[in-house]
Design a binder for these strands. Structure first.
Lengths: 126, 126
DNA sequence: CCCTTCTGATTACAGACGTAATCATAACTA
DNA sequence: TAGTTATGATTACGTCTGTAATCAGAAGGG
């Protein structure tokens, strides 16, 4: 499998829609982004083109239009981006990162329960 | 206080050194980065210049050289970068982010204890 | 059959970025 | 005092990014 290409900030916006609705037409993407970003249609098309050229997206031809889908799972892209982030900002160590976001965030009762459970699981398989 | 400018990937490398040793000369930075990055001296100087122009760094003149220091704390830059990251990749919600990094990371006994404590604190002040 | 329209492709373009060579100037050394 | 050296400034330059206008071809409407 190919090296994970970098996804830029604007491209993430497009990918979000794709992962939610793939395989999806350019039209659908433009519509889905309409309320969120003030992008002209050509702008979205350009992003799609770049993502295809980078190998992040593929498409199947359907009549005169394309249906785009991702060649990498969201999970794998999240993992790559997460690694780059923790390297850049936390010097590669996850614990300070966790501590940071724990402090920053407001968590619901349920969130806390879930995270506690994850911690317990973590403890279990050591 | 001024808007937090964006810090690029290469710039973070420089900032790491600055926050550790500020106020610091260009020479020190070049030396500190020597083992880590294969950057020529002019490259580092350029990054310093850009950071100054962006308002992230300031310097005091000391004889023929400058001593650089940060105009923003590491914490505040980490916070800004963290916000941008959680928005981009986790659609703004911290809990999935925490879950993700919890699963990804291998934690020591001590790490787990620390995180549990943070969770308890979180619970306390709800 | 011609005109509009939809859709992807091509081109554009300014600013950011990574990386660095070169320049000017002051200081140090022989 | 002239040449070397250290240091910041200026210039360079290809690529990436964000944002978009324009183009070409196909398809549908009259």
């Amino acid at each position: 499998m190919q090296e994970q290409p970098r996804i830029t900030e604007a491209e993430w916006e497009v990918m979000r829609v794709i992962w939610e609705q793939e395989p999806v037409t350019a039209r659908d993407i433009v519509d889905a982004l309409e309320p969120v970003k003030e992008w002209s249609e050509p702008t979205v098309k350009t992003l799609l083109n770049r993502l295809v050229r980078k190998g992040v997206l593929e498409f199947s031809v359907e009549g005169k239009r394309y249906r785009y889908s991702a060649r990498f799972s969201r999970e794998s892209c999240v993992r790559a981006e997460g690694l780059s982030f923790v390297d850049r900002v936390f010097d590669g160590s996850t614990t300070p990162l966790l501590a940071h976001f724990l402090k920053e965030s407001k968590l619901s009762e349920r969130d806390i329960r879930e995270l506690k459970k994850l911690l317990r699981d973590k403890e279990a398989d050591r």
